[in-house]
């Protein structure tokens, strides 16, 4: 293992460096995944372009109807941000179960997304919020929906020279709540066996589901939205019966693998249980808001 370390001052400089040293260059931010991959000899970059200190990419910006999270935002910043204690709690809940304190102090949410692990904890919450990504590359800027960005395990539609600069999503309407659940063999420093993010909006004057977005991690080659389960719930009364059916549909839509962490069958069972529980939590939270 040996590499040249580059410290660009701007995104443009970073992209220029990546172009110059492609294909042996690699961006690194928190390094919590890249360094492990280097140590385990999964990758062997000759050039590391350290983007951790690029200006303007660590801010959490709130506008009237949306949030923008800089790609270099640390989990710790999400965990402690007051804006995510309300109906965007899914972000706080996911951020607070990534790794341990040391990891959350250094790892970036952008890194988690571009790493595109099927078990990435921060991807399902952003999928459930219908987030999109701002990307800068040699040809300028572009924007892409997160659900189109990740194409498979470890694979995205990002070119090696492009950088994700921020993640955007719109605020939720009234009578909405979110929740995140994670199952693993231990309570910290754990990779999800299954994780589930849910975003539920009820109709204005009924307890029927107006909008449902579910996202499931570690149960398919990439985190996914179980559209049948979501569609099933629209217009249905929110409650145990409909949530259990949504869980069943989500489990049916999942395609988990068996590995050293869990069997496919157990994972599928977890999807059903966790979807139901995440929705139940959302419903409770909406009711608490109205009290």
């Amino acid at each position: 293992m040996s590499f040249d370390l580059h410290r660009p001052a701007t995104v443009t400089e970073a992209v220029d460096l990546a172009q110059r040293f492609a294909p042996t260059a690699r961006y690194v931010a928190g390094g919590t995944d890249t360094v492990i991959q280097i140590n385990r000899k999964k990758i062997d970059p000759a050039h590391l372009i350290d983007v951790a200190c690029l200006p303007g990419m660590s801010e959490i910006t709130e506008t009237a109807d949306a949030f923008a999270l800089g790609a270099l935002t640390k989990y710790r910043s999400i965990e402690t941000h007051p804006a995510f204690r309300g109906n965007l709690r899914v972000l706080l809940e996911a951020a607070s179960v990534v790794g341990g304190h040391q990891v959350r102090n250094i790892a970036t949410i952008g890194g988690n997304i571009v790493n595109a692990s099927p078990a990435a904890d921060f991807v399902p919450p952003l999928l459930a919020l219908d987030a999109s990504l701002d990307i800068t590359g040699p040809k300028g800027r572009r924007s892409v929906a997160l659900r189109d960005f990740i194409v498979g395990p470890g694979r995205t539609n990002l070119s090696p020279v492009e950088i994700v600069t921020s993640i955007r999503f719109t605020k939720l309407p009234a009578r909405s709540a979110t929740a995140f659940l994670k199952e693993g063999r231990r309570r910290a420093m754990e990779i999800s066996v299954v994780c589930v993010a849910a975003c539920l909006t009820l109709e204005a004057s009924t307890s029927r589901c107006a909008c449902v977005r579910l996202a499931i991690g570690a149960a398919s080659p990439k985190a996914f939205r179980p559209e049948q389960a979501e569609g099933y719930l629209i217009g249905k009364p929110a409650g145990n019966e409909s949530f259990a059916e949504a869980g069943r549909l989500a489990a049916e839509a999942s395609s988990p693998i068996s590995d050293v962490r869990a069997s496919a069958g157990y994972r599928r069972g977890l999807v059903a249980v966790m979807v139901e529980r995440a929705l139940t939590t959302c419903l409770q939270r909406i009711r608490e808001q109205n009290q």
Binding site: G100, R186, R187, A188, E190, I191
Partner: peptide, 9 residues
């Protein structure tokens, strides 16, 4: 993937 308990466990 070798899971020793953490302080949380």
């Amino acid at each position: 993937d070798y899971k020793m308990p953490t302080a949380m466990d």
